[in-house]
């Protein structure tokens, strides 16, 4: 199976760049973008397993809007929220919108990796369930099996 894909969204360039580098060094397929708009574009074009999203981004789309948009495009992607302040309401709102968890800045990489691991696990289970369900469904219609598989492979 191919490596997990992580999208990091943060307006703080120094933070973003370093975190992406460190994740890459740990053999994760990490991509960093500086704004909500870029993140949405990225999500539209590519498949991601987990998005690490800063809630507070001045100018443009903020964390919550971005989250909403991401979940609309790829409902199965797991989102880890990052927050620099303890806005409980925002974090809770994020959780309601389907975020996996939230972390307070500054984060220790070890903690982040643990959360990432949990998120991947969930995503993986989810994916397998869906895949399984799809296979079961497809089994009921043998005539369409190959066609469907081909289409899925194309995606």
């Amino acid at each position: 199976m191919d490596s997990f894909r992580v999208l990091v969204v943060d307006d703080e360039e120094d933070f973003l760049e370093t975190l992406v580098n460190r994740l890459k060094k740990r053999n994760l397929d990490a991509v960093g973008v500086k704004s909500g708009e870029e993140a949405v574009e990225e999500i539209r074009e590519k498949r991601y397993d987990v998005v690490i999203l800063d809630i507070k981004m001045p100018g443009g789309m903020d964390g919550i809007e971005t989250l909403r948009e991401i979940k609309r495009i790829q409902p199965l992607v797991e989102v880890l929220l990052l927050t620099g302040h303890a806005s409980v309401e925002t974090s809770i709102e994020g959780m309601k919108l389907g975020a996996f968890d939230y972390l307070m800045k500054p984060i220790k990489l070890e903690e982040l990796l643990v959360k990432l691991g949990q998120a991947f696990e969930k995503k993986d289970t989810h994916d397998q369930k869906i895949r399984g369900a799809k296979i079961k469904e497809l089994m009921r219609f043998p005539g369409r099996v190959f066609k469907q598989i081909k289409e899925e492979d194309k995606e």
């Binding site: 703080e12 120094d14 460190r22 507070k56 620099g84 302040h85 984060i107 990489l109």
Partner: peptide
């Protein structure tokens, strides 16, 4: 809450850079 945000972001950068 306001101060925390302003301090936490630089702290996060320092931490990541150190890491």
């Amino acid at each position: 809450a306001g101060v925390a945000h302003e301090i936490n972001n630089p702290l996060a950068v320092i931490q990541q850079k150190t890491g």
